[in-house]
Amino acid sequence: MNARTSGRRPYRNDRRAEAAAGTRAAILDAALSLFVEHGYAKVTIGDIARRAGTAVPTVYASTGGKAAIMTVLMNRGVDDPVVEKTLDEVRAATDARAAIEAMAHGVRLDYERHLEIIQVMITAAAVERGVEEELHRVAAVYRRALGVLPERLAELGALRPGLSHERATDILWFLFGLPSWRLFVAERDWPWDETERWLAEQAAAALLAGPDGH
């Protein structure tokens, strides 16, 4: 009896875990769609529960309150596999422009996949202290990731003389940071491909040594 019971328990636990994961995913998707449609400030936990087809206590138990939900959504971009893939490509690049293009393309893919979340988190940060703090943390992680590019350019001997790693990262943050893609793509309707090419060109012009070594 005990052997049979113990044999069934992992199966039941797996089914329970799958159900919980499905509920959590439904809640997160419902929250994001509501945030996009109505704005973060106007959406309630009750709204999210109704859209997800579950109860309010289930939302709190599965994901927490609105700020906690927003934190999970924000980290989708940070945790996207494209981030590590892009950094690996930058570190492996043997040509300076190829390194810049790899970074530009990877950042573009991450933003393209998560643009709705980016737009929501910027507006949410203005009304929720917890979201604002998480946005600063995400921005710091992202800025450190951008810093991999000037490190590689310096290793290749291609970084503009006199340009420090910190200053080069500042330039990349200005060009590839959260506001730039949102401005060009979401507000000015630039195509993603054109935006990627233009930003990569500006990064190359700002970071690379010229033909005369300057």
Rank of each mutant, 00 (worst) to 15 (best):
H105Y: 14
L109Q: 15
L199D: 00
E155M: 12
E134M: 12
E201Q: 11
V138S: 10
L156F: 02
L156V: 04
P179E: 06
R97P: 10
W198C: 05
G130V: 09
H165D: 10
L135A: 13
R143Q: 09
G162E: 12
A186I: 02
E187S: 11
V127L: 11
L87E: 01
E84Y: 07
E89P: 04
E128C: 13
R137G: 05
V185G: 03
V83Q: 11
A203I: 06
K85Q: 14
E133Y: 05
A99M: 03
E151T: 13
T169L: 04
D193P: 08
A139T: 11
Y111E: 13
A186H: 09
D80V: 02
L172Q: 03
V90P: 03
H105M: 07
E151Q: 13
R197Q: 14
P81R: 05
R137M: 07
A139K: 05
F184W: 06
A96L: 01
A204R: 02
A145C: 12
L178T: 14
A93C: 03
E116R: 03
E89T: 12
M121L: 13
E194K: 07
W181N: 08
R129W: 08
G77C: 05
A139D: 15
V141D: 13
Q119A: 07
R91E: 15
E84P: 05
E166D: 15
V148N: 10
D80T: 04
A125N: 02
I118F: 15
Y111S: 07
V82D: 15
E134A: 10
E116W: 00
L156Y: 02
F184H: 10
H136E: 15
H114R: 00
V127T: 12
R197N: 06
L199W: 10
F184M: 14
V83T: 08
A200F: 13
T123K: 07
P81S: 05
K85R: 11
W192E: 13
R129N: 14
D189A: 10
V148E: 15
V141L: 14
E133S: 13
E166W: 07
L175G: 00
G157D: 00
D110K: 07
G147R: 06
S180I: 09
R129C: 06
L163E: 03
E133I: 13
V131K: 01
G106R: 00
H136A: 14
E187Y: 07
A204W: 04
D79F: 03
E101P: 09
R143E: 15
V185A: 03
L183Q: 12
L159S: 04
E194W: 08
L178M: 15
L199K: 04
R108C: 08
V82G: 03
R167W: 12
M103N: 01
H165W: 09
R188W: 05
A93Y: 05
P81F: 03
A204P: 02
I122M: 11
V83I: 14
R197L: 10
D80C: 01
A139H: 06
E151W: 12
L199R: 08
E134P: 00
L156N: 01
Y111Q: 10
W173F: 08
R108I: 04
R160Y: 00
L159F: 11
F176I: 00
L115G: 08
E133F: 05
L87S: 01
D189P: 09
R129G: 07
D193R: 02
D170I: 10
R97L: 08
G130D: 12
A140T: 13
V138D: 12
R76Q: 11
I171G: 04
G177P: 10
R97M: 09
